[in-house]
Design a protein around this nucleic acid. Structure first.
Lengths: 222, 222
DNA sequence: TAGATTGTTAATCGATTAACAATC
DNA sequence: TAGATTGTTAATCGATTAACAATC
């Protein structure tokens, strides 16, 4: 990337960036890291797109929201582009994450270190069940939810993974918001009520399976 | 719903239905079930929309792809609409699901019975690790992946949850596709290469957290 | 009946794609 | 240089919203 690109790059907080673009950015990042692992240093927009089911034009347009990262006649250098995307997403640093709910799923998430490579680290874990509070999982001692405010303020935690039962979710969310959490990854199968400055990403297993069921039925109908 | 609505309802396999509509259908379904639980029998498109962050017009348009389910002047009857949406999604019956990979995450998913209410039942579980094959989790004995074809054919399993390590994902997928699986819920953080008649829904924790990080950074910048 | 709300059409808005001069 | 590919503009496509007659 040349110096001009740096100077011309638009502010990363451009409010006009569509959500779909940001989510593809994550997809590009994952694929570029894969490319690097298999020893590919440079890739064109159309080749990158083909791997992910999008057009080359879209790949270029997506990056163009944030600056000029490519080389005409050559393509994109994977290593450089990875650095740029991480900077855009804000994962060029490590984010401490709070885990709320250390039951079945919560414990599995603690054991899954896949996202630590991407700049996220579950540093604190909470629950309300007296049988779980005080236990240690993956070297992390579960705290009572009552201690949330002081702990996450002290560590400036902004992100939380919510893995509590559906009927406890919205009460927990109120606590999280009051404590200063601004991004929530929600595994509870309910709509969360949050102020509009709080971001929520939901993962609902049943809903994902429903999408598949529809697609499978549609396919059979053909 | 009147009889005419039945007669007029478009085929559920209408290829023109956008993906976004189908995914909102799942969201409506979840919310309607919640409404029913709290004793609300009837709801207007705008009230339902407000709860989910979409407009009333969009709610009505979404349903209009599939038929006429509402009552002018009254709204929609939750119970009826639930039945209709399940019929559309194909979850008016139970789908057997195969779980591939019974490590950390796989075991947690087995323990999470949240999606069984929605018509999905993990009936068979597979792994390749000799330390895991043969063990029983939640009353389910883990089979070796080699036995996949015969077992899923015998039970006509069409859906699989893939919870294997990233480097094993694409090899496993080849087996699944060969065996006749046509819908895959992928938890491995890699792009799956599948024929175009196979549906894949991906859940990547790192990617979801990245979306939150971006949103949080953007919000702070305001 | 009057009030409320649907289903649907037309208008608007936004996102994707095609095309191509500029560049390496 | 010739070939390849970018960044960007204009054209296309699709999805959302506004509006309203029909209906309960």
């Amino acid at each position: 990337m040349n110096d001009l690109a740096q100077l011309n790059s638009k502010p990363f907080s451009d409010p006009n960036v569509p959500k779909a673009v940001v989510s593809r950015l994550s997809l590009y990042l994952r694929e570029l890291q894969q490319l690097l692992r298999v020893g590919i240093a440079t890739i064109s927009s159309s080749k990158l797109g083909r791997r992910l089911g999008v057009t080359g034009a879209q790949v270029r347009k997506d990056f163009a929201y944030f600056g000029q990262f490519g080389y005409p006649g050559i393509g994109y250098r994977c290593e450089e582009l990875i650095v740029q995307i991480r900077k855009i997403l804000g994962t060029d640093r490590t984010w401490p994450v709070a885990l709320i709910g250390c039951g079945n799923l919560g414990q599995a998430l603690l054991g899954y270190h896949g996202f630590s490579k991407q700049g996220f680290c579950v540093e604190v874990a909470f629950d309300v069940d007296p049988n779980i509070v005080g236990q240690t999982f993956e070297g992390l001692k579960v705290q009572h939810l009552d201690h949330l405010p002081q702990i996450i303020e002290q560590r400036s935690v902004k992100l939380a993974i919510l893995a509590v039962p559906a009927n406890a979710a919205n009460k927990a969310v109120d606590e999280l918001v009051k404590a200063g959490i601004t991004g929530i990854l929600n595994f509870a199968p309910v709509t969360l009520n949050v102020p509009k400055n709080i971001s929520v990403v939901g993962v609902d297993l049943a809903m994902e399976l429903e999408q598949l069921a529809f697609a499978v039925v549609k396919q059979v109908a053909k």
